[in-house]
Design a protein around this nucleic acid. Structure first.
Lengths: 208, 208
DNA sequence: GATTATGAACCGACCAGTTGGTAAAATAAA
DNA sequence: TTTATTTTACCAACTGGTCGGTTCATAATC
């Protein structure tokens, strides 16, 4: 549940600019360390504008996660991997696509929801839930392809399409942490290779 | 790179109490949201004591990560999975062990280094490095078993023991995020099942 | 002329960190 | 063994600055 963030920079209102600033700053430094003043400065807006559009900092956070879900939803909806006729190719194509966008600054390809969850899962149930819904919602877009592949490849397995789709998100989230640890995306890409290999093995007919 | 945290509660000095408080509070709320006052209150110590033992909040953070590495190092060193004669059994036993400690509060089984990385990778290179070293160091304890299994099972693969050991940590870190999202460890456990299955498939002779 | 959007100045609470001190423990001198 | 001295461990009160949030005046827009 993440993606590259390309700041629109079109002529936009204060609330749009603040949302975009939030995506960048929160993914760089986390939520608590991102002050309202810093958000306003980044957005080129004053505090009056901030509290005109958002009733609190947490209110902006919630709006930012919704905005994030919309952006990523549209981004993956139009991605090329949906074009494959074989459902397994679509799944593997999704991973190739995820790997291909591991470029530029770390904050540009990591996940807002995952970052915010780490800080707020325990203290803010509302934000926890919108972040969870964002990740769950993205994982759900993979389920039909997985289910179709399971049927088409006639595999009998003890796991569900939902479970695998969530595991894929877990690997992505973990890969982001490795990227943050190492200061680069290379290790994250290797982890996606392992996941790619796992899914190939799962759907590959075995035992002669 | 994480584990259950059992507060020692022996008669200990202020710095020990502060380190233990840091492990709990930072994993619950993140670093930035954990104030020095909150740490002191949790440790039952005053601010004077805090700044007697640590020259800054960041200094405590670094000490806490080192403390974490020591605790987890000792914890996994004495874990039962090392007893298996087959190296693959040791690797899979490690995962079973990791799964078995996914109990109690989320903050008790999640990883301090992974949590802190999310907030500080971009702003504090020193802390980023000690967190990275903590995770890398733990992953490195798995490498000999993986290398031995690769040799013993005579598999020819395009990946290294290091790469797989880091992938295992990625899955764990990602599983923690899913646990934080869902409010429980169940999804995290399922992700570990997928990783378990992947490693079994990797070392299982195929194509015949 | 209302409603919506923005700005500058401000507020109390809380932040990390300092000060100046006390009590006990370790060390040294007698 | 007792006394003197230093060091370590700790504490309560405080400081300057930053935090999220408010106030109220002013633009722009319909």
């Amino acid at each position: 549940m993440n993606r590259r963030f390309i700041p629109p920079s079109r002529k936009e209102g204060a609330s749009q600019k603040l949302l975009n600033a939030a995506l960048t700053l929160i993914r760089e430094r986390g939520y608590a360390s991102t002050s309202v003043d810093a958000l306003c400065a980044r957005a080129g807006v004053t505090k009056g504008a901030f509290f005109h559009h958002f009733k609190s900092k947490d209110d902006l956070a919630i709006a930012a996660v919704h905005y994030w879900s919309e952006l990523t939803g549209a981004f993956f909806e139009t991605a090329p991997y949906h074009g494959h006729t074989d459902p397994l190719d679509r799944i593997l194509g999704y991973l190739d696509f995820r790997k291909s966008i591991l470029t530029g600054e770390i904050a540009e390809f990591t996940c807002l929801a995952g970052t915010m969850l780490q800080e707020m899962y325990h203290t803010n149930p509302v934000i926890r839930e919108v972040c969870a819904a964002s990740i769950r919602g993205h994982a759900a877009t993979l389920e039909p392809d997985i289910a179709q592949a399971m049927e088409q490849y006639r595999i009998q397995v003890p796991w569900t399409a939902e479970s695998l789709s969530l595991h894929m998100q877990a690997v992505l989230q973990g890969a982001f942490i490795l990227a943050k640890a190492s200061g680069g995306a290379a290790i994250a890409a290797e982890s996606l290779d392992h996941l790619h290999r796992y899914i190939q093995l799962l759907f590959q007919p075995r035992g002669q």
